[in-house]
């Protein structure tokens, strides 16, 4: 399951003078679930639209390993846009059959597939209703059904759950969890929690460039840093004074602690990024005892993907 499915090389897109995507490279391995992460406006949607062939890139190319020469790469892709738009006068069943026929399925095959998929996404009861009356969550699920109708090698989704209410979100996430064991999935999101929950690999992009990419596990282990959060008693000036002095001392380089790499005071919380967890814990406790700092909570843990994301994207 490690064969390469798709490779993106030097993909760029400019709109006039605005460079939306600046030479992006990444590849997708077969069977993986890849999240394209980035803040709003980073170029996620533009990248995805170029992958699906809806937007011609200014430069660069997208290539599929398994594509026979002359074959349309669109045959391998199933695409679900952020807000899928359908023909409101069609029924759910009609639309999925239509999508199947467009992908080259025969009449009876398309009908069977449509029935199976609508059942699967939980729209069997609404199959005969007109799409104009579908809710946002139902449309998203129908979008998933029509994207899967031709058993694509790669399912591409643009912000699949961003526009949904918590219930619809749960439902779609549950479906995605099932699907990722069956096909290769690429989705974009700005919700880190979803990415952490679902994906194997992440590609973080920032203002049109790849800021960081790799498997979630390796990124975690490489960039994971021990962090200590100390909550101080706000009313107690002694504690706050100590914290301010401590932060100032470390930042000015006046006193460098080998166990500490970063210190920051946010309100009444002191955030410490440690170099070595065990040393840090020991040294900090000694420091606290020496100055008899009154604190209300001390939390020791590791930086989350969100911290990493903020660090990568926020620069």
């Amino acid at each position: 399951m490690t064969a390469q499915l798709m490779e993106v090389k030097g993909l760029s897109k400019s709109f006039g003078t605005m460079k939306a995507v600046k030479s992006i490279d990444f590849s997708i391995q077969e069977g993986r679930c890849v999240a394209l992460l980035g803040p709003n406006g980073a170029g996620k949607t533009t990248t995805i639209r170029m992958l699906t062939g809806l937007l011609a890139p200014t430069a660069g190319e997208v290539s599929f390993r398994s594509l026979a020469p002359g074959e349309d790469r669109r045959a391998l892709i199933g695409y679900l846009p952020q807000t899928p738009a359908f023909h409101n006068w069609m029924s759910g069943m009609e639309y999925v059959v239509y999508a199947g026929r467009l992908c080259g399925l025969g009449v009876s095959e398309a009908k069977n597939r449509a029935k199976e998929l609508l059942e699967r996404v939980g729209l069997a009861d609404a199959a005969k209703r007109k799409l104009g009356g579908y809710s946002g969550g139902m449309k998203q699920r129908l979008g998933l059904a029509q994207a899967l109708v031709h058993q694509p090698k790669l399912l591409v989704m643009d912000e699949p759950v961003s526009a949904l209410d918590p219930l619809g979100r749960r439902e779609v996430l549950r479906l995605l969890k099932e699907l990722k064991s069956e096909t290769t999935v690429l989705f974009s999101t700005h919700v880190l929690h979803d990415a952490e929950e679902l994906c194997d690999d992440v590609v973080i992009i920032r203002s049109g460039e790849v800021a960081l990419q790799g498997s979630l596990a390796s990124i975690r282990s490489q960039h994971r840093q021990p962090v200590i959060e100390l909550k101080l008693d706000e009313d107690n000036t002694r504690g706050m004074d100590w914290a301010r002095a401590f932060v100032q001392r470390t930042n000015s380089g006046e006193a460098s602690y080998s166990w500490l790499s970063e210190a920051e005071l946010r309100g009444n919380r002191l955030h410490l990024t440690a170099a070595h967890m065990d040393q840090a814990r020991q040294a900090l406790l000694e420091e606290l005892a020496r100055h008899s700092v009154p604190f209300s909570r001390l939390e020791v843990g590791y930086s989350s993907l969100e911290d990493l994301f903020m660090k990568v994207v926020g620069e």
């Binding site: 699906t52 809806l54 669109r74 892709i77 695409y79 807000t83 738009a85 467009l102």
Partner: peptide
Amino acid sequence: NSGASALVLVKPV
């Protein structure tokens, strides 16, 4: 404008 064409044209049409 609605985006309905996008769903058709990402298929091998």
